[in-house]
Design a protein around this nucleic acid. Sequence first.
DNA 1: CGCGTTGACAGTCACGTTTCTGCATGATCA
DNA 2: TGATCATGCAGAAACGTGACTGTCAACGCG
Lengths: 342, 342
Amino acid sequence: MAAAAGVSITTVSDALNGKGRLPDATRRHVREVADRLGYRPSAAARTLRTGKSGLIGLTVTTYGDEPFTFTEFAYFAEMARAATSAALARGYALVILPATSRHDVWSNVALDGTVVIDPSDHDPVVSELVRQGLPVVSDGRPVGSLPVTAWVDNDHEAAVLGILDHLADAGARRIGLLTGTTTDTYTHLSTTAYLRWCERVGQDPVYEAYPAHDPCAGAVAADRLLARPDRPDAVYGLFDPNGTDLLAAARRYGLRVPEDLLLVCCSESTVYASTEPPITTLSLKPRRIGTAVIQVLIDAIEGLNSDQPVEQVIPTELIVRTSSQRRPPRTTVSPPRSPEGD
Amino acid sequence: MAAAAGVSITTVSDALNGKGRLPDATRRHVREVADRLGYRPSAAARTLRTGKSGLIGLTVTTYGDEPFTFTEFAYFAEMARAATSAALARGYALVILPATSRHDVWSNVALDGTVVIDPSDHDPVVSELVRQGLPVVSDGRPVGSLPVTAWVDNDHEAAVLGILDHLADAGARRIGLLTGTTTDTYTHLSTTAYLRWCERVGQDPVYEAYPAHDPCAGAVAADRLLARPDRPDAVYGLFDPNGTDLLAAARRYGLRVPEDLLLVCCSESTVYASTEPPITTLSLKPRRIGTAVIQVLIDAIEGLNSDQPVEQVIPTELIVRTSSQRRPPRTTVSPPRSPEGD
DNA sequence: CGCGTTGACAGTCACGTTTCTGCATGATCA
DNA sequence: TGATCATGCAGAAACGTGACTGTCAACGCG
């Protein structure tokens, strides 16, 4: 390349990167020759020299045996898509990596930083990355003493309390919860918020837990919840498929929604807008979370705000539909209390 | 690192890579020191030296302004997940990249090869990659003279013909099609197969087309289709959300499914198992496609079968549910004719 | 005893950048 | 006119690895 343009390697580098002291004529000449030859600088060599690869790792911690759960819930897909877009806009690309601690894959790729979705307690991958000095930003408040650089999350407790109040306002006397058996932050915070709410209003908790990654178990748990002698007259489901599962279970037991059973579930799926009846959902705003996570991470990579750990709270949105209203449906959108702005 | 272990750089390299002629004692010693120091060989340097990065690009060509459509259809998410798993199992990681021809992102990452989902005609990114000598495998038969290394696809024509026969067998007299306005292979092949089938059996084509990336347009098109004076008594929808859209439209017009209207749509979503009624879907088996694409690509990268271009056809699966059966539903699974085995 | 062979490493180069330093050349100025 | 200085570029080091090549001792064998 340098030879073809009749200049030195230095001149080529300076011309293409806009550095050095070169007259515009030389710069144009070099670029022209580069274009003609289809020359592309080697990313590997640049990474080796500069120490920056422009790559960001993306990990979803999972509980099943499959290494990934992109498709499991719409939340992950939405979040990943937003993160990819945001990273790209700042010149970074996302590498999908497994949450397992198998070093061979992780150490084979030069990363500038990592996004971890819903990290578990004492995640070995996170510890290793932090030890290497790489910034790690998590989607989801880190459990225990996980040493992440920053995190972004919703206020899950406020969201659950808002939903329970909403259901109580709609006339619910005994609100049930469909929750998970896993120990991640989301499940934990949501469940304890529910229990505290029950205690406050003096209602006996009515809930069923199941392994959230098992779609069959969700349907069974929904059925169990509605088969109980202390059957609830309103249910909030923590996971995306709970809405359809609960709807099917209600149908089996001859319960009309919303007349006999009020229903809300946490989901990003649009199918709940056209179920019969449409189901009220809580959106965690994965697009905003994905974008925020990437911005914070890239800021850390580029040393833009290394003063203190960043903790960002994204408000949720309750999309009220027929399933949680005893009165005739109004298709309005009302956000729950959100502790902080964006 | 070399100094810490008291040996030369060469010895470290040989010890960690299992090469050279070293006694096991030295090998163990070096590995022990490496573990203790938390030493990881530089991926960038290795890539520069070996010319292999262990990274595979993944691109979804899109038609909207958003750079990605992972979440748009469950197909993409499933396919991407399977591809990620398969790549990982062979020591490769996936990098999500935009389908745009902006060079700056593409040339900033060292790729060993690329997976392109549903490439459009004369895709500039594909041409550029092939020119660089990188293997490119596409999900979807390439249009025109797109110079991909290999491709994997379903036999969309056979699938459509199978569905139309299935609907005709169930008593349909006039079968309609909900299709797209885009020019991708899937839409094109499916639509022409429909038109040929109509010609063969002597039925006037009844179809509505809409821009597939616009979710609102889908609902409108479904409505249009059922509002026509020559209203079909069976409809096949080419895209994932068509099932719920058509179901909602049928409800508006007071049409019972399957009594007044038979319904099939192409989807990977499980929601159609629990709609009212459950809807028959065609699965393109995205997991098998994603796995196959990665295997073919990595084989090409590693030079395992460079003898000839690989073209692989994955059979589809028709999941028959209530919506396409006039007789009482039997929940059986019957694959359509599939031209080749796997 | 001489010679080839093998084991066990160390030395060195090259991968393709970026970046720092250095060297001409011509212009400016005292 | 000689000193200073900006300009325009070339040279060379370094990034950390992997693949050769080289060296030196020990050893077997005729």
